[in-house]
């Protein structure tokens, strides 16, 4: 049987400079002749395409942390959307706290992403926008409203801003949303991501498995961080790169001897060529 390999991108399959080595490219090209290989990432379709270049996953890609599953040739297999109505309500509730979100979604038809931002920004949001300065998806939305197909609503700020907001939104929307309040890796800021409750990598893995007619136990996954824990627990074989967080390593079936910068994933996969 053709094996199915699914890897996280950043700090797992990608090197720390976000590149993919020649060795990794060659290995995957060979691998995909006999097996299935794809990605599970927080990145967008657009961005994954940029990273992978000529490398083509031959199974559906898990994108945007599991809110979108799409094939390499732009066929959408699944979307986990937040309704426009709920998204607009989130905006109204947040305004009571004096904070406005970024809303990330899809254009009405097609799979181009939209990244809408408000006029009134706090200093953390400004910094984030700086990093997206030349991103073609960016659009100022005045007034701030949701698009028809919302993938996620994201707030940036401090814990002081976002904790009460999270509690308030939970009291209103309950189980209709998934709430992820986490510190940023740099800069001391926090972010709150609101998603469809099934918008995560492990739900997406189940969808992909069903789509391809695989059991999750037959899947091998690679990862480095806490957002990979769900799929690590779900899948038959879960491999942590050597640079993975300790919190993930304890959930891995095996810790690879190499790091992302040493092409850990590709080195492991050579045994299936």
């Amino acid at each position: 049987m053709r094996r199915l390999f699914i890897t996280d991108l950043d700090h797992t399959f990608l090197r720390s400079d976000q590149s993919i080595s020649e060795f990794s490219r060659d290995t995957i090209s060979e691998l995909t002749k006999n097996h299935l290989f794809t990605v599970a990432t927080a990145r967008s379709f657009h961005k994954v395409g940029e990273f992978l270049g000529s490398l083509k996953p031959n199974a559906p890609m898990i994108l945007l942390d599991g809110t979108m599953i799409a094939t390499n040739d732009k066929k959408i297999i699944d979307l986990k959307l937040i309704s426009q109505e709920i998204s607009d309500e989130i905006v109204s509730e947040a305004i009571k706290f004096g904070i406005y979100p970024f809303i990330i979604g899809l254009e009405d038809v097609g799979m181009e992403e939209l990244f809408w931002y408000p006029t009134i920004l706090n200093v953390y949001q400004k910094e984030v926008l700086q990093n997206y300065k030349n991103d073609p998806r960016l659009a100022l939305k005045e007034p701030m409203r949701a698009m028809k197909r919302v993938l996620k609503v994201v707030f940036f700020g401090t814990h002081e801003i976002l904790k009460p907001l999270t509690d308030h939104l939970k009291s209103i929307f309950g189980d209709a949303l998934e709430y992820k309040l986490s510190p940023e890796n740099y800069g001391g800021g926090w972010f709150l991501t609101l998603l469809h409750p099934h918008g995560d990598k492990s739900h997406a893995i189940i969808t992909v498995a069903n789509y391809l007619g695989y059991e999750v136990g037959d899947i091998t996954v690679f990862g480095d961080s806490v957002n990979d824990i769900g799929m690590f627990e779900l899948c038959g074989t879960s491999m942590a790169v050597s640079n993975a967080l300790d919190g993930l390593k304890t959930h891995a079936s095996e810790v690879l001897p190499h790091s992302n910068d040493e092409d850990a994933v590709a080195k492991y996969l050579t045994r299936f060529l």
Binding site: K96, G98, I120, L121, N122, V123, E142, M144, I161
Partner: peptide, 27 residues
């Protein structure tokens, strides 16, 4: 409400534009 100002960046800022933006959100 202090929330109108609480998270704004320190620096020069007129009240008119801030209010106009806030009005767009029925607040």
């Amino acid at each position: 409400s202090p929330n109108l100002f609480k998270w704004l960046e320190y620096g020069k800022r007129g009240l008119g534009d801030l209010l106009r933006d806030t009005m767009l959100h029925d607040a």
